[in-house]
Amino acid sequence: MLFYLIAILVIVMDQLSKYLIRANIDINETFSLWGIPLTHIENSGMAGGLFQGYARFFAVVAVLFVIGVLYFRKTEEMKGALIDSSFGFLVGGAIGNGIDRLLFGQVTDFIIRSGGILNLADHAIEIGGLLLIIYGVVSWLKSKAIDSLKNGDQ
């Protein structure tokens, strides 16, 4: 349930924020919200503006990624709140940006950060990736501890 809750929350917040930006801020207009600088741009490529014009291709990649995660979750090899949260952020972000790519042929970005201008879906993907790394490290440490106990090392 946590997976679906996070994914849906990410999609709703991402799409709502992008709608508000598109409806109220001109392209290339910069403004500040609560001290955070924001600039409305439209990106038909991927992160950092790479591969401009390939939005539809990246939409297909996002769909395949979501299908892969849903299939992987069915195998139930990885369980727990941490991995469910990770996958929820990753899938929510992929769907959020995928919607833009399919509907508009580009993604609305507006959050200025070192390294580029991003959106909430991009940040969700980063959070999901970080949680996935943490899950991997924790799982590795647990397996080492279990192996150590099985071998009588203490």
Rank of each mutant, 00 (worst) to 15 (best):
M1T: 07
I6A: 03
I8V: 15
I8A: 14
L9W: 12
V10N: 10
I11Y: 03
I11N: 08
I11C: 07
I11K: 06
D14M: 03
Q15N: 06
L16Y: 15
S17A: 15
L20V: 14
I21P: 00
I21Q: 09
N24A: 01
D26R: 15
D26M: 13
N28S: 13
E29H: 13
F31N: 09
S32W: 11
I36A: 00
P37V: 06
L38A: 06
L38T: 02
L38E: 01
T39N: 02
T39F: 00
H40Y: 03
N43H: 10
S44N: 10
S44I: 01
G45Y: 02
L50I: 10
L50Q: 10
L50E: 08
L50K: 12
F51L: 13
F51V: 09
G53H: 06
Y54H: 13
R56F: 15
R56Y: 15
A59F: 14
V60C: 12
V61S: 06
V61L: 14
A62W: 00
V63C: 08
L64E: 01
F65I: 08
V66K: 05
I67C: 05
I67P: 09
V69D: 02
L70W: 10
F72A: 15
F72R: 12
F72W: 14
E76D: 15
E76G: 04
E77S: 11
M78S: 15
M78N: 15
K79F: 03
K79P: 04
A81H: 04
I83G: 10
D84S: 13
D84H: 12
S86F: 05
F87M: 15
G88W: 12
L90R: 08
L90S: 01
A94G: 08
G96P: 10
G96V: 09
N97Y: 05
N97D: 06
G98T: 07
I99C: 10
R101T: 09
R101V: 06
L102P: 05
F104Y: 14
F104K: 15
Q106R: 10
Q106N: 12
V107C: 03
T108M: 02
T108P: 04
D109S: 02
D109I: 01
F110A: 01
I111E: 03
R113E: 08
R113L: 14
R113D: 06
G115T: 02
G116T: 01
I117Q: 00
I117V: 11
I117G: 00
N119V: 10
N119F: 04
L120A: 12
D122L: 03
D122E: 09
A124F: 02
A124I: 07
I125K: 02
E126W: 14
I127G: 04
I127A: 12
G129N: 00
L130A: 13
L131D: 06
L131Q: 01
L131V: 05
L132T: 14
G136V: 11
G136W: 03
V137W: 08
S139D: 11
W140H: 11
L141C: 09
K142R: 13
K142D: 11
S143R: 11
S143A: 11
K144E: 11
D147C: 07
L149Q: 14
L149N: 12
L149I: 14
K150F: 13
K150E: 14
N151R: 12
G152C: 00
G152I: 00
G152T: 03
Q154I: 13
Q154G: 11
